[in-house]
Amino acid sequence: MRPTPPAIEAGLTSPFPRSERLVGVTRDLDRGRTSPEAAEKAFVEAETELVTLEEKLFSNVTAGYLRWNDLLRPIAESWGSFRVGPLTRWLETNTFYRQPILTGPPRRTPGAIAGRLPPPLRQRPARGRVLLPGPYTLLRCLENQSSIAESDVLLRLGQELGDEVAELGQAGFATVQFTDPVLVTAPPEGQLATATVDAYTAIARSSPKVRTVVWTYGSSAGPVLPLLDRLPVSMVGIDLADTEPEELRPGPPGQGLGLGILDPRTTLPETLADTAAIVRDAVRLRPTDHLWLGPGAPIDLLPTRPAEEKLLRLSDVHQMLLREGL
């Protein structure tokens, strides 16, 4: 008897780029040339347009997180013992984030993250994909000015993020993605590796009904698979622009597999045949019953037009694999 083919889904895994119109509006807002009301109207229109496209193409929606200045900012701005620090380079890119400064035990503020989610996403929690920084990446990207040891900070971040997931679960959100690229760009070792597993365990315990995803990119996941296999999450995401399929091996039973099959570091569109072939290779080496396809690195590394073209290409690949099978 042939094994049951995996369920295949596709969708966004990162904030979407701001449209040229939003670029103009946000610049104008900065320079006092437009009103906050006009900017709000432009954001609502852009979010509505994007969520409509996502609903048409995919099962999950994000509404693009267009208002977020960076992935860490909502936490840096709203959690207790955090403040917003200096501009810092985001991994190996030419984009920057404001470094969160931690001055004491991290304490989440109930409702603060949910309140910062894009409005169209809040209206569609069951189909929504909430994006949060993974605890290890958050640890590595913040400046720890507290007297708390790194591994303890990491565990506390896991507990607080777990409470965040529980709150989001109660609001009806079905999927929370933890974007955790530093797991592969500068993997944790020793005590920090143990604390990483503990942090994700705290997240998993908080709300078993919510599907949790850890998404990696920026370097090969191959050497880190033994650690990723220990994380009690519903799905692990691997960027195939950085990871050769030959580096993959079977994962834990029941764990889903996310594959980054769009490379936002080039505007060159991926070809259907090459992309389908690499997906088939990857799934052959790391079998799964639940496959997710998306951009590997954040798609907002691209301007809007090529990002939209790639999104359509993602849908084409998804449909092709659904039609022809893996």
């Binding site: 701001r18 900065d30 984009t95 984030y97 301007p303 090529p306």
Partner: peptide, 11 residues
């Protein structure tokens, strides 16, 4: 082909 964000509202 368009603007890319450097940080916040800087492109």
């Amino acid at each position: 082909q368009g603007h890319v964000r450097s940080w916040d509202s800087k492109y």
